[in-house]
Design a binder for these strands. Structure first.
Lengths: 237, 237
DNA sequence: CCTAGTTACGTACAGCGTACGTAGTGCGCT
DNA sequence: AGCGCACTACGTACGCTGTACGTAACTAGG
């Protein structure tokens, strides 16, 4: 009969080896790495069970011995890149440390643009995610606040970074499945936005466009956002 | 030949009627409403071109006369529910007004849980989204700040609300495609999380679990988050 | 040693987005 | 007035997806 049980489980709780039978040809790390490679190269849509299996050099259905559902493959991917966080030694300056963490997260998501799409749909407590969370809490040791508050800080900071990068890359990832280039897509959208703003229906929005005529400094926007989040948690702020 | 052009375009720029030919049987609003109805009832996965066409009572391919790509259908959906925002008269108290906007957004996303998945993937400047943005800017008239700063405020507030609701509903929406119930899923994940925390590998995380033993008041967390965001933009804060 | 549990993988199915072809309809132009 | 073209409508078909299921080979535990 089928060893594949249709029973609730977390992939992390399922042991990677069980002893019986021929020894598995791949580790979970192998599989995650293959999937990440495909996603980096061809976007999230390039990650199909068939493609990952081909990348590993095995039959499609063999993958299901390691990964019961596609969802779990996504979870492996998120965990794998979560492991890319550098867990440095806390310096004692919690603001500086958290800034460093946030900037790292942003860089990580730029390296793996498909992450933003997975973040809102995958459960966030894989081993490496827990490790990162623990690291953040260690950075926050000097902050005098309840543990719950610290977790709220980490969640809010991560959330803001995610949405920021999501906005930044909104076209970049989506355009992969479109039959035209990112430049064309942006041009046509900006043209529409311009026509709407020029229509006079959105006076305040139009005024804002007049104000900052030049190109916006996205990095500065990002840094301002971080400062504001941290301010919200600083004592006497 | 094909009237279906594989050329970059925004669906909002394409006129709904062109004069020539038999008159369309549906409006964009009809289509959006049908798709939203399906998504509310059966989750985002229930929104397929075939299903929407069936809901409207037309052939699958007829839908492509109105909606050139599935992506555009999503855009119609987002715009339709964006129109559910109540654009009240600003009171002069920008903090209170923005709180009201944020709470409305949260309620809206609870009514349409699939929205969080669409928000990070769909371009954010549909007509109703622009109207809402303009409304927020009107609420912020009393705030003495550059227009760019106000837009940052709106973006940050919306972003935080989105990620908050996303975390809140992460299982709820995902579990629809799983062969077991949300309760089972949560139970199994909490069991795993508990086992990890109990393993001693994450001491600070464990301490935090000890601290707030009781169930957390999610609404309070939400309100605290909003206050912190607004604080970051209040003068002399 | 035997056998139960595992790995491996081909086949098959239902569903998806959508390219394409054809038939019918009615506005705009000459 | 009437021709032609742009449009609507929609059936068929293709390539892709996730994955249920069956079969064959293999190996560790009793």
């Amino acid at each position: 009969m089928a060893g594949r049980a249709a029973v609730p489980e977390v992939i992390w709780a399922r042991p990677e080896r069980t002893g019986r039978g021929p020894k598995p040809a791949f580790t979970r790390a192998d599989i995650a790495a293959a999937a990440v490679r495909l996603a980096d190269a061809g976007g999230l849509d390039a990650v199909s069970m068939r493609h990952v299996a081909a990348e590993l050099g095995c039959g499609t259905m063999s993958l299901y011995n390691y990964v019961p559902r596609k969802e779990d493959l996504y979870e492996l991917m998120v965990d794998a890149v979560s492991g890319e966080h550098e867990l440095f030694e806390p310096t004692g300056d919690w603001r500086a440390d958290m800034l460093r963490n946030a900037r790292q997260t942003k860089a990580l998501m730029h390296r793996h643009p498909w992450m933003v799409r997975l973040m809102s749909g995958v459960y966030g407590f894989s081993p490496n995610a827990l490790r990162y969370l623990e690291h953040c809490l260690a950075c926050l040791d000097p902050l005098d606040a309840r543990a719950g508050t610290k977790i709220e800080l980490v969640a809010m900071l991560n959330g803001c970074v995610t949405t920021y990068v999501s906005n930044e890359l909104s076209t970049a990832e989506r355009v992969r499945s479109l039959p035209w280039s990112e430049e064309q897509e942006n041009a046509v959208r900006i043209a529409y936005l311009g026509s709407q703003v020029a229509s006079g229906a959105y006076p305040r929005l139009a005024a804002s466009f007049m104000e900052d005529a030049g190109p916006i400094d996205l990095d500065a926007v990002f840094e301002r956002m971080l400062e504001r989040v941290l301010d919200g948690f600083s004592p006497r702020g």
